[in-house]
């Protein structure tokens, strides 16, 4: 030890070398180094574009003059903007609600299948979530076709008049939500299935002996035990659904008469197709406060329950 120290005094370069080694060996340094690739990705693909779009939103159409909050003022005065806000909310909330509901019931059914046969059902039920949405949505687009589609053909067999699936505002809204639910329910199913599997079987047995019937077991045991998973899954899905672009873009492109636009498709229409990038940026930025507020509420509940439990 003493010899080593003496050597270090004689050779200052050696000292620097060891302190650098020490720095490299510190846990925080290692942790930072290992997360660096992710940090770089987030900065490049999320943080930089986010700030850039904030900057863009303050420019005029030709992107040459600073207009401050002018773009927002302009949006607030337009009825279409408020319609898009309303539609985005309807779209996201109803789609997430049905995804959560269907996912919950399907997860229950799958959970009751004996383990041996469960894998293939899980696999099949995940298919909608695994196929690239652009491809599966085109499939749905054909199913919705007013004159030649399978749906209307089937309805015709029962003597029902053809339905303008994508042509009538109400049906078009229904259709985009339906496809989104079809696409997103498997995600809820798999999350809930994992949560269900983590509920100890003995809790149900204890409840059965305590006198709980099927519904009471669901209400008093399953749901409280799954609350955190449900909250986090709903939040995550709410964010993704709010920002949905591909399904609406492919099925209706926002039509008829802008009645199915959501934030992302309308921002695309104004910014890219309408050549007013600052206005498009302003529209897309508007999702931020809505999602931020809901995230705070949901995560606060999750944290409270984690502390309680």
């Amino acid at each position: 030890m003493a010899e080593l120290a003496a050597e270090a005094v004689r050779v200052p370069a050696g000292v620097r070398h060891t302190s650098l080694q020490k720095f490299m060996r510190r846990r925080s340094t290692i942790a930072f180094a290992m997360t660096l690739p992710l940090i770089v990705l987030i900065v490049a693909l999320v943080i930089y574009p986010a700030f850039y779009s904030m900057y863009l939103a303050t420019l005029n159409k030709s992107m040459q003059r600073f207009v401050g909050l002018g773009n927002f003022e302009f949006l607030f005065r337009r009825a279409t903007f408020w319609m898009v806000v309303k539609q985005s909310c309807i779209f996201a909330i109803s789609a997430v609600f049905f995804k959560a509901l269907i996912g919950f019931f399907v997860a229950h059914f799958v959970h009751t299948i004996p383990t041996k046969g469960q894998r293939k059902w899980r696999g099949m039920l995940m298919v909608p979530w695994v196929i690239p949405t652009a491809i599966s949505t085109i499939g749905w687009f054909w199913l919705f076709d007013p004159s030649y589609s399978a749906f209307n053909w089937l309805l015709g067999k029962f003597g029902v008049d053809p339905v303008p699936w994508l042509g009538h505002p109400l049906w078009a809204r229904f259709s985009v939500i339906l496809v989104n639910v079809w696409y997103g329910a498997p995600f809820f199913m798999i999350m809930y299935l994992a949560a269900l599997k983590s509920v100890p079987e003995q809790l149900y047995e204890a409840a059965a002996i305590d006198g709980a019937n099927w519904f009471q077991r669901l209400w008093y045991i399953t749901l409280p035990m799954m609350r955190n998973i449900i909250a986090i899954t709903v939040l995550f899905s709410l964010i993704v659904t709010f920002a949905n672009f591909d399904i609406v873009r492919i099925l209706t492109a926002g039509g008829p008469v802008d009645q199915t636009h959501v934030f992302a498709t309308w921002a695309f229409l104004l910014g890219i197709q309408g050549n007013d990038i600052p206005l498009g940026a302003a529209v897309s930025l508007f999702m931020l406060p809505i999602l931020g507020v809901s995230a705070i509420f949901i995560l606060r509940g999750v944290r409270r329950r984690t502390i309680e439990a």
């Binding site: 409840a207 059965a208 019937n213 008093y220």
Partner: peptide, 20 residues
């Protein structure tokens, strides 16, 4: 007769208390 109508009470090995 289902468990709830047998008028029995059971104590489990891992207690099976409702955590919430």
């Amino acid at each position: 007769v289902p468990p709830k109508d047998r008028d029995i009470a059971m104590v489990f090995q891992n207690y099976a208390l409702y955590p919430h």
